[in-house]
């Protein structure tokens, strides 16, 4: 619809951040073009959420620069953060109301999306305290998706949910992504989640938060089966940098027949890895 087809992208160059005297982020570089899913993976407390807040504009960028020409970003937070005095429908429609969409239209759109994320008609009339945790997460997801965002920021939105609910919500998300030129920046500490959904994985380490490894997954998300996800996750978990970032003890490839497989797998994932700074020993969050 735009007459000037400037390629949409999110760009971070040398981004850093400090709270009072504590440096939480240092030298973050990445580029996220439209239609790609990027995962920031790392242990708790390595500055992932701060980075996402900087991208979302909730914190002022003081060091480095973040450029984005996406027009409608939307965020899903770690907690559902629903307004307790609004029912599910009005919560979903919050962003539309802020954008000045007329009541009838925004309620129709919110109701439609509410149904798509699995809310029943009478759930939509309920207040958040009447909904289960899973239902609240659905509302929070619908609140973001109803805006038709071109950039979606996800901060471990479903980390408190059980495995089944989480899988269901990610499937909903994947279904929504398919065929849309939407860029997604997601935070997770779950490698398998990252492997399942994203095209690029940035592994972060803490103190200060920085990117220590990058991986690209070439198979399209739609064609990744469980087997692929388990295999690639296992491979990632053998990577020394990843292990160190999460505070896992270094893995020793034993002198066994699987030994060779162990080595080649590591090399395979390392091919995309740029010359990232090696982790400064033994740091964890």
């Amino acid at each position: 619809m735009n007459t000037v087809p400037a390629p949409r992208r999110l760009l971070a160059r040398g981004v850093g951040h400090a709270y009072a005297l504590r440096t939480v982020l240092e030298g973050i570089d990445f580029e996220l073009p439209a239609g790609r899913v990027m995962a920031l993976v790392g242990p708790s407390g390595c500055g992932k959420t701060t980075l996402l807040h900087l991208v979302a504009g909730l914190l002022a960028v003081r060091e480095g620069r973040i450029e984005s020409n996406f027009s409608t970003p939307a965020s899903v937070f770690q907690q559902p953060r629903l307004l307790p005095w609004k029912n599910a429908l009005d919560n979903i429609a919050l962003g539309l109301k802020a954008a000045g969409v007329a009541r009838a239209e925004r309620e129709a759109r919110a109701a439609e999306l509410g149904v798509r994320v699995g809310l029943a008609a009478d759930d939509l009339q309920k207040f958040p305290h009447q909904l289960s945790g899973g239902m609240q997460s659905r509302v929070a997801l619908a609140r973001a998706l109803v805006l038709g965002p071109d950039l979606l920021l996800l901060d471990e939105p479903f980390s408190a949910l059980d495995v089944g609910l989480k899988a269901e919500l990610y499937a909903l998300l994947a279904e929504h992504l398919a065929g849309r030129e939407m860029a997604v920046l997601m935070i997770t500490h779950d490698l398998m989640e990252a492997v399942r959904l994203s095209d690029d994985i940035l592994v972060m380490a803490a103190s200060p938060g920085r990117v220590v490894a990058r991986f690209a997954l070439d198979r399209p998300a739609a064609r990744r089966d469980d087997d692929f996800v388990y295999r690639r996750t296992a491979e990632l978990l053998r990577d020394a940098t990843v292990r160190e970032s999460f505070g896992l003890p270094p893995q020793v490839c034993a002198q066994t027949p699987e030994d060779a497989a162990c080595e080649t797998a590591l090399q395979a994932v390392h091919t995309v890895r740029p010359g990232a700074a090696p982790a400064r020993g033994g740091l964890r969050c």
């Binding site: 807040h53 979302a56 939307a74 953060r81 307004l83 919050l94 962003g95 954008a99």
Partner: peptide
Amino acid sequence: GQLAELAAAYRLP
């Protein structure tokens, strides 16, 4: 504070 952040993220006037 979380709801204030939400208001900012969703660009509430």
